[in-house]
Write a protein that binds this DNA or RNA. Sequence first.
RNA 1: GGCCCGGUGGUCAAGAGGUUAAGACACGGCCCUUUCAAGGCUGUAACACGGGUUCGAUUCCCGUCCGGGUCACCA
Length: 569
Amino acid sequence: MEEIKIIQEPLRPTSLSAEECRRLAELLFPQITKRPEDYEALYPERDLPAGALVTRLGPSPTGFIHLGNLYGAFADERLAHQSQGVFILRIEDTDQKREVEGAVETLITSLNYFGLHFDEGATVAGEKGAYGPYRQRQRAALYQCFAKLLIQQGRAYPCFCTEAELEGIRSAQAEAKVNPGYYGKWAKHRDLSLAQVKERLEKKEAFVVRLRSLGDPERYFSIEDGIRGTLSMPENNQDFVLLKADGIPTYHFAHVIDDHFMRITHILRGEEWLSTLPYHIELFNTLGWQPPVFCHTTVLMKMEGETKRKLSKRKDPELGLDYYRSLGYHPAAVREYLLTVLNSNYEEWRLANPGLPMEEFAFTTAKMGSSGALFDLNKLSDVSKEVLAGLSAQAVAEFLLDWARTYEKKAYAVMAKDPGYLKAILNIGRGGENPRKDLIFGKQIHEFIRFFFDEEFIYEDAFPENIDKETALRLLEDYLAGYSFDDDNQAWFEKVRQLAAAHGFAAKPKDYKKNPEQYKGHVGDVSSLLRVALSGRRNSPDLWEIQQIMGTERSAARIRQAMEKLRGA
RNA sequence: GGCCCGGUGGUCAAGAGGUUAAGACACGGCCCUUUCAAGGCUGUAACACGGGUUCGAUUCCCGUCCGGGUCACCA
């Protein structure tokens, strides 16, 4: 990775003396007694094989994750695990207001469901790993230690501005047509004297800690992004907030400190962080730490009307992970889909290696796209069909039942009654060179196979219109008389041909096409009649096979039921 | 609006200074076929625009346009 230009000479050093800075720090953080080097010792460099990557997922516990989050998380997971590195779950709970009860548990369960497992970090039970705690609010003392350090160094200061004062600054800036923000001469409390601070403190005024930025936005630095290559950005000059009034850090401060002390090597995050990268770089430089490799992923987009839009948790609840889970998408299918979106060469690899587990694919950040990808349901379906077609009937049956048990209880009761039957149904067209691919997700599979179950059987389609009622009844009656479970597929269909011929239908469609006036129809029409009788549908898998699975009794009952229906009609 | 990131068929995308500009999904046609699914063959369809640099630009540079992101004591 390329070296980052270090921001050097202070533009406007603090007006306080070194001694005053020390006293200020002590005044603000008397309770902080640990020193920076204590933390360096507490969280040592990791002893990992060469080339091992340490990545982290840092969700905020707002109780909702969508496909876009999974997308990034999956990249993190692959990078860590394929390099024998470490994959960490860190809960970024610095915003108490937005926290949702139980969100962490939901989050972990969901991620696990989709095959993401963490080596270190927060767990449902608590946490594991030597670099914890992994919930940021529990690391308050650590952040405060470094806030204190920066104040000692004259690189941070307390700011007592109220909401109204900040608003005043913003409107003045708007009027003057300059960039908004707390910086330079607009940073009112940047040069408060020690006495002034004391005075406000005595009045119990709340304060935040801000960085005393030394950057100059006229100057640019370049940085190598793991996904996007060389990036050119202006230096930061914002005195952004490090510690909020409650003593809890902002994302910016927590991110830099945690990623340093958890010894993270690669930071994957959404491109919405690109514009604050200069904040983070200034912080890393100020603290004298080597920044990890930044990898800014593209956000997953959604089509809204004519335009693309970033996935939003508020507007797109249907893109929430639980949505896919509740519809019964197989986790492997979702993973497979995500991988095709994540790495452009994955599909190619998959085509060449149909049988290999996806873990063997060499995932790289360089192959990740940097333009916004649209979530493509068609593609997900296709991938899903492919994945399900590759599983055994047993595996599909288990998956289907697991899904139905929680999301489709009635269906579960029906399907679970006879596991052998269910398995036989799901085995239709499975295996071999060109398996059927009509199963996509749980709910859809259930719809697809429900006609096999008497409890759920209904006539979804009408009987063929070109066969009159009398003929239809006679056909069904004769069919019933001639049917034998022991016939093989060919023998069975031969009988259907004969049956068709006996009732004035062409035994072969070609004959019918040649002389349509000589026939009532052709064998296909007769099949169609049988198909509706047996399955309630005009389209279904192979009829002979269906009857083999349903058995003589059930099949015969269906035929009789159809006759009843015809008579009644 | 400032700043940042992007722009190759409908979608996802490969690609290199000279290619007939891959592939996948979707869509159309044909074949196979008792329906469906699968399979085989095949077709429609793309380098945002304008300037440069160059013998040659979709590829490099600049501008324009378009899309997205971000400008919080949210992450």
